[in-house]
Computed example of a mutant assay.
Amino acid sequence: MMEATGLLSAGESTTAMAYIKARRGISPRQMKAILLVCMLAIGIPIGAWVSGSWLDALVSVEFAFVGLGLGLLIIQRLAGTSLRKALAERGQAYEQVLTFRLTPETLVYDLGDLTMAARWPCVTDLYQTRKYWVFLVQSSAMVLPRRFFATPEAERDFIVAAMSRMTNAALARSPDAARFVRR
C-alpha cells in the first residue's frame, strides 16, 4: 500500500478539475480566447457604427476589457473570503488533511470526515496538470496535489504504483502519466 498526504484547501481542486473539460473538448483558455475574440468582433464594429468613428470604438472596447479584467480580479478576491466565511459558519475547516491511498483493489481518497474509494477498473484516466495529478473515476475526479510528494522520485514511484493497478484501456488514455514515468 502506498499513500500521499498533505493539506488541501477548500476549493483548491476546482482549478485542476477545470482541465477535465479540456480533456472532453474545449479548454478553459480556449473558452476565454473565443469570448475575447467575439467581444472584439462585435464590440468594435457596433461601436464604430454607433459612434461613427473606428477610433472611438477601439477606445471603448479597450476600456471594456479593462473593466472586465478589474471585475474578474474583484470576484477572485471576494470568492476566497466568502468561501472561508461560509465554511466557518458551518463549522468546517478551510484546510483539511487529504490522504491518497493505493491499495491492490482500490484508490482511496480520504479527506477529513469524507472517504471515497474506487475500484481500479473504475479509474478511466490519469493525467497531470502543472500542480496536480487527476484521477478520473467514471465521471468524477480525484485530485492529488503534486506538492504532497517530498521528491520527484517519490512522485514517480507513486504514479508507477498507480499505473500498475490501472486497466490497459485507462493506461492508453493516460499519456501524461506514461511520459512522466519515462523521464
Results as ranks from 00 to 15, higher is better:
M2D: 13
M2P: 07
T5G: 12
T5M: 12
G6K: 01
L8K: 04
A10W: 11
G11C: 08
E12M: 11
T14E: 08
T14D: 13
M17L: 10
M17K: 13
A18T: 10
A18N: 08
I20W: 09
K21V: 12
A22S: 13
I26V: 13
S27A: 14
Q30E: 14
M31H: 11
K32N: 14
I34R: 14
C38T: 11
C38G: 11
A41T: 01
I42R: 06
I44P: 10
P45T: 01
G47W: 02
S51G: 14
S51H: 00
L55E: 11
V59K: 07
S60D: 06
E62W: 10
F63P: 04
F65R: 04
V66W: 04
G67E: 03
L68M: 03
L68A: 13
L68F: 09
G69H: 03
L70K: 03
G71M: 00
L72Q: 09
L72N: 14
I75R: 12
Q76T: 09
L78H: 08
G80A: 04
L83P: 01
R84F: 06
A88M: 09
R90F: 08
A93I: 07
Q96S: 10
T99E: 03
T103C: 07
T106H: 11
L107Y: 07
Y109F: 12
L111Y: 05
M116N: 14
M116T: 07
A118T: 06
W120T: 02
C122N: 12
D125C: 03
D125Q: 12
L126A: 15
Y127R: 06
Y127N: 14
T129V: 01
K131G: 13
Y132F: 14
Y132T: 14
W133Y: 12
L136Q: 13
V137C: 11
V137L: 05
Q138F: 05
S139Q: 14
S139R: 02
M142C: 10
V143I: 02
P145K: 02
P145Q: 09
P145H: 05
R147G: 14
F149D: 06
F149K: 03
A150E: 15
A150N: 06
T151L: 06
E153Y: 08
A154M: 04
R156L: 10
R156Q: 08
D157W: 00
I159N: 01
A161F: 06
A162G: 01
A162D: 08
M163R: 12
S164C: 14
S164Q: 15
A169P: 04
A170V: 05
A170L: 00
A172N: 15
A172M: 15
D176M: 02
D176T: 04
A177W: 01
A177R: 01
R179P: 09
F180W: 07
R182N: 06
